[in-house]
């Protein structure tokens, strides 16, 4: 599904990724771990299509298509989703109105009709229940005054609504208490299936107790320094990153 070959990325002439390779297949969950500044967030931003980053070398193939020239919204239309570490606040636009706009934008881009209001409502209710979000929350302005946990739950709620093929969760565990972590992880697990793939980007092993990865990669100095299974995460928790 996702094939990253020898990826080099810089921002404002500063090289951040230096020859990264990664292959993700349908049904898989990959965890990417690494110290601060290793390029984890850059990787997610580049896959999602942030134009602040410049790909200087290498390729990203998604479903066998080179996506280098696609805008962020075009990537979204093709099923790529990113959960943000710091979701943006939009006063005056409710969670419900925002998700409606997003869903219908995607349908329109795929040449489909807008979702009928009753179907939308049913869908919103079901997905909100999955993340234990109550209806009052849905009529609040997007992310405005949300707690850390509410923001992350809202991100996964959007993921549930948009039903992506490839989801990148950037530090979804940061700022979460243990209950919120459980709810978020539970939501993600319910969305897992054999047709989609998830990349979990995290500092800590604790999220991986809840979302069990098939592969764990350590990102260091802009490349994958080591790959393994879930046990690698446990080793990192114990020994830190220095031993690699």
């Amino acid at each position: 599904m996702l094939k990253i070959q020898n990826l080099h990325v810089s921002i404002e002439d500063k090289a951040i990724l230096n020859g990264l390779n990664l292959e993700v297949n349908p049904g898989e969950v990959h965890a990417i771990m690494g110290p601060n500044g290793s390029g984890k967030s850059t990787l997610s931003a580049v896959i999602a299509g942030n134009e602040d980053y410049e790909v200087t070398k290498g390729n990203i193939f998604y479903k066998d298509e080179n996506i280098e020239d696609l805008s962020a919204e075009e990537r979204a239309h093709k099923g790529i989703f990113m959960s943000f570490q710091y979701p943006v606040e939009i006063p005056g636009v409710t969670v419900t109105n925002f998700i409606k706009t997003a869903i219908n934008s995607n349908l329109k881009a795929r040449g489909l009709k807008e979702m009928p209001a009753n179907e939308m409502l049913k869908n919103i209710r079901n997905k909100a229940a999955l993340l234990e979000i109550d209806s009052k929350f849905l009529s609040r302005s997007l992310n405005e005054g949300f707690s850390g946990g509410e923001k992350k739950r809202n991100e996964i709620f959007q993921m549930a609504m948009l039903n992506p093929t490839l989801a990148i969760l950037d530090e979804t565990d940061s700022g979460l208490d243990i209950d919120a972590l459980r709810i978020v992880a539970n939501g993600v697990n319910k969305l897992r299936n054999e047709n989609n793939a998830i990349i979990v980007i995290t500092h800590y092993q604790r999220l991986l107790d809840h979302i069990i990865p098939d592969y764990v990669h350590v990102l260091q100095d802009g490349k994958i320094a080591k790959s393994g299974d879930k046990n690698l995460a446990l080793q990192l928790e114990e020994k830190g990153y220095d031993w690699i």
Binding site: A45, A48, G49, N50, E51, D52, S71, A72, E73, R75, A76, H77, I80, F81, M82, F84, P87, V88, I90, P91, G92, V93, F98, T101, A102, S105, N106, A109, Q158, L162
Partner: peptide, 29 residues
């Protein structure tokens, strides 16, 4: 805000609509 614009675009909202939404939000309160 460029990062806000990027956020909306990753949700599949086209640039023009995303800008409109943010402008609307700017004035709204």
């Amino acid at each position: 805000d460029k990062s806000a614009l990027f956020y909306l675009k990753t949700r599949g909202i086209a640039e023009k609509e995303a800008k409109g939404l943010l402008t609307y939000a700017f004035a709204n309160n």
